[in-house]
């Protein structure tokens, strides 16, 4: 199959599996991308997560986080699998992340350029490695988004069938398989 068509089909499949877009009124500035059951995020907050996911796994010559709806996957995981405390921490961390970006660039993370977002996220990565900043919630929020984005990516049909080889029925076990041929596990 043509790769572009495959990717487009994939986006359709993933999109249809996700929660239906909300038609409810906005509590805040913009319309949420999806209505979640437990985790209440306004449109700006959801956009921030989507932009952050795209910063972590950007579109290159292969699809990025937004193409693959990885932000929707992250929302679903956080909404369904995290408990109330974790969700509250996530929200608090998101606010801290947004505020820190505002303070640094005098505009929202969503309004930042790709270069600015990348620089900002690289700084967060550095803070995590150096344990430099004591903003645990912000960094936990960032790590949660990264973890779910990466998990969503590496378990997506796109990745498992186009980036590596996945066979539902391998049919044999080759204990000495050349590593150059990638197989999903």
């Amino acid at each position: 199959m043509n790769r572009r068509i495959a990717i487009r089909n994939m986006a359709l499949i993933l999109g249809s599996a996700a929660v239906l877009p909300s038609c409810l009124g906005d509590k805040n500035n913009s319309k949420p991308i999806v209505e979640l059951k437990h985790l209440q995020l306004n449109g700006d907050e959801q956009q921030l997560v989507a932009n952050l996911a795209e910063t972590i796994l950007p579109k290159t010559d292969t699809p990025g986080a937004k193409d693959l709806n990885l932000h929707l996957f992250a929302f679903k995981m956080i909404d369904d699998c995290m408990n109330k405390q974790q969700q509250d921490d996530f929200k608090a961390g998101l606010k801290a992340f947004a505020d820190a970006a505002d303070a640094k660039y005098k505009k929202s993370f969503n309004d930042c350029t790709v270069a600015e977002r990348t620089a900002f996220v690289n700084e967060a990565e550095k803070d995590i490695k150096d344990k430099a900043k004591d903003d645990a919630k912000m960094l936990t929020f960032y790590q949660t988004v990264k973890q779910q984005t990466v998990f969503g990516y590496t378990t997506s049909q796109y990745f498992m069938t186009k980036q590596v080889v996945y066979e539902l029925v391998p049919g044999r076990y080759n204990a000495m398989y050349p590593a150059a041929k990638k197989e999903a596990v």
């Binding site: 910063t55 950007p58 290159t60 990025g64 990348t118 990565e125 590496t154 980036q163």
Partner: peptide
């Protein structure tokens, strides 16, 4: 497999490619 922590790469296109 993929999705492991890659020490040298934090984010971005190369990070994405390294996952495979």
């Amino acid at each position: 497999g993929w999705g492991r922590d890659i020490a040298e790469l934090n984010i971005g296109g190369e990070f994405k490619d390294a996952m495979s």
